[in-house]
Design a protein around this nucleic acid. Structure first.
Length: 693
DNA sequence: GTAAAGTGTGTTTTT
DNA sequence: CACACTTTAC
């Protein structure tokens, strides 16, 4: 460690010795094992500030995080540090921190490929498709090639993309992937090969890249002798957050960027690896020291987040994992409430309990935004959402079905994407089949016509539309021509959204129910669009970093400081923390998920997931266990079974919790009104069901 | 031949 | 409730 000037010394004095060692490490490869709540973000931002203070040009620093939000937060903190370091040029400080390359692997890939992709023969005007677009493409190729027709158990489109994606991200061939993860698909190997081949070809023809391609081409670019040199010349320091959730392709990219590890810093926690379904491998972080000999390993174990009673429980839970690397988190916050295991009769009572407890904390001065409800699967929060709506409590839900994935939003984006890239037949097919009277076949003919004309929408004027299409057809052509005219760009992207909306609104009302609500979504999208300078950047941002909740979109610009409760999947809660945390559905089958019981590896990952959920809590932790589980099945409407407590609260863990029922007996007869209301509803439901088939 | 309406089945997590 | 597949309508 080199000598530290006094004014910088002061800034780093607030770090603990391990954090400080990490932040001020020299340029050799560095692995920071950062347990939950150990000040990872602080350490990483100090490290970036340190590197800059050592004379590294910020534009030659690459900071890879798992979301753009995390990247922005990091840059903000670096900025603050640079100012505090007394950079004489105040403005210079923020300009410098802004020039840092920050973002996700995927968004960074897009940026780099637009700049340098041509050197490996990739056009710079590609458009990017998301997961469901990839599924649509896969599905239309499947029917085009007539694969899997009349064949039992041919994988569905979602599974097809999953298999394909896993092959790409693990860098494995099809057969081993099938054997390991999809053995029931082995009989279709040949069909799959043919299909995936066509999938690759088609994406090339259409000048589109999917999520996997972004990594794949970045990897290819970095492997190329010339391309690799270019990228290595671009970056002097590379820092990676959440390294436990990277995959083989991503670690390969890093290896190409920093072959001997010089300038490379990775941060993560093997106990929080929860993305193996996305081909992330915990081996990346575990084997890092062998991959880069001479690596300095720093372990952060002092937890600044949770109270000791909460840590005692979470430490015990992670201790029981099959494979793990020893570290023991400790906290100086000795005193505190024990975590509470709440017995609920069913998920309605669970919802009731959460709302009651949330309000109690609110009255005691804990704002809603310092409280969060976490769950394994998006639908686990349904009953709670109903209750929150009924009692007028504001909430934001993260994870699950995103705003951007709803059909009407996808429709609108497809018009814009087709205008941006007329070769994009996925979007073409989508917008054409929206027109009444046009289905798969006619749409395909029209797309062929478009291709033959050199992708000029004029070509469609020759088409004789069927009766149902007549009134829409000329308007549609005019819309597409307007959007693709050079003048359109000048008027701004939100004017384009407006034009699309004008054309599409009547179709929307016809196509879907709940029209007004959907129309409102599109109005919001128009608002959002006004913040973007070009159609390309709008499309790219929206596909690579979609707003994670519908409410975010509404509030983003106006920054309403309305207080709201956070509802989130555990996956989306990564890296965050709240004063009070409520975990729903701590029952076997939900946590761990029924779907992930095949192997010890899968169960271990579910355990880590539970661990991640619990370690989000600072002061209060409630784990809810609804005893009775209802079946959603239409046929067995009223059926239920009695669940088991999640296996992750073992006999050794249980004593670390305080166990109590959701409501005490005396509480139960107080809210009489509500009591009678629900009872009546139950009776009606039962009566109705007596006559339903 | 093609589009649209109808029927039966299975539900995680996300860049 | 969306998906794959089937039947009916144009």
């Amino acid at each position: 460690m080199s000598e530290i000037p006094q004014h910088i010394e002061d800034l780093f004095a607030q770090l603990n010795p391990q954090q400080r060692a990490a932040a001020c490490h020299d340029s050799g490869s560095l692995l920071i094992i950062a347990g939950a709540g150990t000040g990872k973000t602080t350490t990483l931002s100090h490290r970036v500030a340190w590197l800059i203070s050592q004379g590294i040009d910020p534009s030659r620093i690459l900071l890879l995080t798992f979301s753009r939000r995390a990247a922005n937060e990091m840059v903000r903190r670096v900025d603050a540090l640079l100012r505090a370091m007394g950079d004489s040029r105040e403005h210079a400080a923020s300009a410098r921190s802004r020039s840092i390359w920050g973002g996700t692997f995927h968004s960074t890939a897009a940026r780099l490929l637009r700049r340098y992709g041509q050197s490996i023969g990739l056009p710079d005007d590609f458009t990017i498709i998301d997961r469901s677009d990839a599924e649509d493409l896969m599905s239309s190729l499947r029917s085009e090639l007539e694969l899997g027709n009349n064949v039992a158990k041919f994988p569905r489109k979602g599974t097809l993309v999953e298999i394909y994606s896993r092959c790409v991200n693990t860098c494995l061939k099809l057969e081993p992937v099938l054997e390991r993860y999809y053995p029931w698909c082995l009989e279709h190997v040949e069909a799959l090969k043919q299909l995936f081949q066509a999938f690759v070809d088609r994406k090339e023809q259409q000048n589109i890249l999917d999520y996997d391609d972004l990594l794949l081409f970045w990897h290819a670019l970095s492997s190329d002798p010339a391309g690799g040199k270019l990228l290595r010349g671009q970056f002097e320091a590379v820092l990676v957050d959440e390294y436990q959730d990277t995959n083989v392709l991503q670690s390969g990219i890093l290896k190409n960027l920093c072959p001997d590890g010089a300038g490379l810093t990775v941060v993560g926690d093997d106990a929080q690896s929860i993305y193996s379904f996305r081909a992330a491998t915990v081996r990346n972080i575990l084997d890092f020291p062998e991959e880069y000999p001479g690596t300095t390993v720093v372990t952060l174990e002092e937890n600044y987040r949770s109270t000791q009673p909460i840590l005692a429980a979470t430490n015990q839970i992670i201790d029981e994992a099959h494979e793990r690397y020893e570290k023991k988190l400790w906290s100086s916050k000795i005193a505190g409430e024990p975590p509470i295991l709440v017995d609920c009769s069913d998920n309605n009572e669970q919802a009731d309990f959460v709302v009651t407890q949330v309000l109690e904390h609110l009255e005691a001065g804990i704002p809603l935004n310092q409280q969060a409800v976490l769950f394994r699967a998006s639908h686990h929060s349904l009953a709670l959402e109903v209750e929150l709506a009924r009692r007028n409590i504001a909430y934001h839900k993260y994870g699950g079905l995103k705003f951007i994935e709803t059909a009407h939003v996808k429709d609108l984006m497809a018009y814009l994407r087709l205008a941006e890239n007329p070769r994009d037949a996925v979007s073409g097919l989508r917008v054409l089949t929206l027109l009444p009277g046009i289905g798969q076949k006619k749409a395909q003919q029209l797309l062929n016509l478009l291709a033959e004309s050199g992708f000029r929408f004029d070509a469609w004027s020759e088409f004789k539309p069927p009766a149902a299409t007549v009134e829409h057809w000329p308007l549609f052509i005019r819309l597409m021509k307007n959007l693709s005219s050079p003048q359109s760009e000048k008027k701004g992207i939100s004017s384009e959204v407006h034009q699309v909306r004008t054309f599409y609104s009547p179709l929307l009302d016809q196509q879907y129910d709940n029209g007004p609500a959907r129309q409102r979504d599109l109005e919001q999208l128009e608002q959002v669009a006004s913040r973007f300078s070009s159609r390309m950047s709008f499309l790219e941002e929206i596909t690579l970093d979609p707003p994670s909740s519908t409410q975010d979109i509404a509030n983003d610009s106006s920054k309403t400081d309305d207080d709201f409760l956070v509802l989130s999947t555990i996956h989306s809660s990564k890296g965050l923390e709240w004063d009070a945390v409520y975990v729903l559905q701590a029952a076997d089958g939900s946590i761990p998920s029924e779907m992930s019981l095949e192997s010890n590896d899968e169960i271990d990952e579910e355990r880590r997931l539970f661990y991640v959920a619990l370690t989000r809590a600072k002061n209060w932790l409630y784990v809810c266990f609804p005893h009775r589980q209802y079946f959603q099945n239409r046929r067995w409407n009223q059926a239920h079974s009695y669940a088991q407590l999640t296996r992750f609260i073992s006999s050794k863990t249980l004593p670390l919790f305080q166990r109590r029922p959701a409501f005490n007996a005396e509480d139960l007869d107080t809210p009489e009104e509500a009591q009678i209301e629900t009872t009546a509803e139950d009776i009606r439901k039962n009566i109705r069901n007596m006559w339903s088939s």
